[in-house]
Design a protein around this nucleic acid. Structure first.
Length: 577
DNA sequence: GCCGTTTTCGGCCCGACTGTTTTCAGTCG
């Protein structure tokens, strides 16, 4: 996920916007959109492709023309074709496409007829009631635009954890409707994307009207923006949009695939069907007018010659080709986790005693739990100095002596300082079972220095895990770092990279998980729990790992404690060598 | 603009809902 990839993706997306407004061939537009997505999703920087002499056209969806444009962007930082398009249509016009309800035709009309070139001008025109005068527009459309703008305020995406909670509440409300057989959450929430733009819910019921009525009565529903016989759209109090689709049981599998997406995945699946003379829609798989599959997801995939594909993989990132070859990964599952290697107690930033945390972990079936409170520099998190840490270790020893069914590991979440030193001396770290190292400050360092400090920390012989490796946090931007260099060093040193399940982090990202898999790096999936309830966060870490194609064999805390211990020792022996 | 065990040209996924039409275009997922 290098900076070049993001630049290229942004340029291709803007080209697509402007082409769309110009009424260009829609498939040409799609080619740019697909390329933007593919390049943005690449684990390693595109420039590395070029340096290694690999043809860019090996990337799916990149042909000769787009390869040239990528090279041009790498060489010059810009793209002549985009500049030409911008000359014809101001950049602000492209951004109008992001306003819900505005597509290319309407944007073009607004621009040509009213010279609207920005969101601000659009707002003004709507307030002045000038939009309703345009042919094809009307009072209602104008009103909707105004409403959308007021709600707009940047792109609205919510954290997966929030969407999941709201979705589960709505789903259970719908389940209590008489005649409803099943309610399933689909969409990006089911694919476990770290943020969710809207919720998709599939309902199996005979009486559609009754479901729609029941939906509108849910406490959390603020507004019904569309409602037909089979589908409805509502807005929740939080502003989150929910699309509900009511279908018959015999269509459940087809509807789930359709509504789970991703769009890119579904397009490929439908194309496969087409090649076989079949048609797939949300009702099933059809040969001419005869329905041949659709009740289960299995049956739909089987109809196009594929095994079932886990929702987390459905991004058109190679999963369909892997499925066709019979090479889908056996994904890690929540049940595979034997322990959690990063949790806090009230000695540090947490709110509960070590014993309470241990009990909660045991209740979830975990075999071991590493307590990893902060080191001294994290003063706001009551970081532990050597003396307090020694006291905590004694407490853990005594708990281990009397608690059954769970083993506590003595750990620390030690800060990586600006120069790569750790915040506690080696003599102290050597006395612990487990060391989690993490960056907690100095986010503004330039890429080279940021990378160098982390590489140096990985050289420390006591470090077992690099926690939240790109320091993703909803409160701030991530820092810039050479992730490939870090992964290769981590592999050499036997250090695991963490997938932090806490919803405000979820770092490693899915793309980085995939990269870790390709690089053969160990991964740890942790909750970073500050309270017993937060062990729930492990499921989001698992989701992220599955999105990154990770199997159980590379996840260190999918090992039993007996299997884990030699790995920890090995990593230290390895490091000293 | 991409792509190819039917094709190097001619394809490129499919249906629901809304508003403004007086038979359907535009947008969305």
């Amino acid at each position: 996920m290098g900076t070049h990839n993001d630049t290229i993706a942004a340029i291709f997306d803007e080209i697509a916007d402007l082409l769309e407004i110009q009424d260009a061939n829609p498939f040409r537009v799609r080619a740019y959109r697909n390329a933007a997505r593919t390049v943005g999703d690449l684990g390693s920087d595109v420039s590395a492709f070029v340096q290694r002499g690999m043809p860019l056209t090996d990337i799916p969806g990149i042909g000769g023309d787009l390869a040239d444009k990528i090279r041009e962007i790498l060489d010059t930082g810009g793209c002549e074709f985009l500049r030409r398009l911008q000359h014809e249509a101001p950049a602000g016009v492209g951004r109008l496409l992001k306003v819900p309800g505005l597509g290319p035709r309407r944007v073009k009309k607004l621009w040509h007829a009213l010279n609207i070139q920005s969101v601000q001008q659009l707002m003004q025109a709507a307030q002045d009631q000038r939009i309703r005068e345009l042919p094809g527009f009307g009072e209602k459309t104008e009103h909707k635009i105004l409403e959308a703008l007021q709600r707009f305020a940047g792109e609205r995406r919510v954290k997966l954890a929030v969407a999941a909670r709201l979705g589960e509440a709505l789903a259970s409300h719908l389940r209590s409707t008489p005649g409803v057989e099943r309610v399933e959450i689909a969409g990006s929430c089911r694919r476990m994307r770290e943020t969710v733009g809207d919720l998709d819910i599939v309902v199996v019921a005979q009486d559609q009207a009754r479901v729609m009525d029941r939906l509108a009565r849910h406490d959390d529903v603020q507004e019904v923006t569309a409602s037909g016989t089979t589908r409805a759209t509502v807005i929740l109090q939080s502003g989150l949009q929910v699309d509900v689709r009511v279908i018959r049981r015999e269509s459940l599998g087809a509807a789930l695939i359709y509504f789970t997406g991703s769009k890119a995945h579904n397009i490929v699946i439908r194309r496969l069907a087409q090649e076989r003379g079949l048609k797939i829609n949300e009702y099933g798989v059809f040969r001419d007018d005869e329905k041949i599959a659709g009740e289960t997801e299995d049956s739909v995939y089987a109809a196009v010659g594929l095994p079932w594909i886990a929702p987390e993989l459905r991004e058109d990132r190679g999963e369909i080709e892997a499925a066709a070859r019979g090479e889908l990964p056996e994904l890690i599952d929540l049940r595979d986790l034997r322990g959690d290697l990063h949790a806090h107690s009230k000695a540090g930033a947490g709110h509960h005693s070590i014993e309470e945390m241990a009990q909660a972990a045991r209740e979830r079936g975990l075999e071991y739990l590493a307590i990893a409170d902060h080191s001294p520099r994290a003063s706001t998190a009551h970081g532990l100095d050597a003396v307090r840490l020694a006291k905590q270790c004694a407490e853990i020893d005594s708990l281990n002596a009397r608690m059954e069914g769970i083993t506590l590991l003595k750990g620390i979440e030690v800060s990586i300082l600006d120069d790569g030193d750790l915040d506690l001396p080696e003599s102290v770290l050597a006395g612990l079972d487990f060391v989690v190292a993490a960056v907690h400050g100095g986010f503004g360092l330039p890429r080279e220095k940021q990378t160098a400090r982390i590489l140096r920390a990985l050289d420390n012989p006591h470090v077992n895990i690099l926690a939240h490796p790109v320091a993703l946090d909803s409160e701030r931007e991530t820092y810039d770092v050479d992730m490939l260099a870090i992964m290769r060093k981590a592999r050499r040193r036997g250090v695991a990279l963490e997938i932090n399940g806490h919803p405000r982090r979820l770092d490693l990202t899915d793309v980085h998980c995939r990269m870790a898999r390709d690089e053969g790096v160990w991964v740890a999936i942790d909750s970073d729990a500050h309270s017993p309830l937060e062990f729930d966060m492990l499921r989001f870490g698992i989701g992220q790992a599955r999105r990154g194609w990770l199997a159980r064999d590379k996840v260190i805390n999918a090992r039993t404690l007996a299997q884990l211990r030699p790995l920890l020792r090995r990593s230290r022996r390895h490091s000293r060598a």
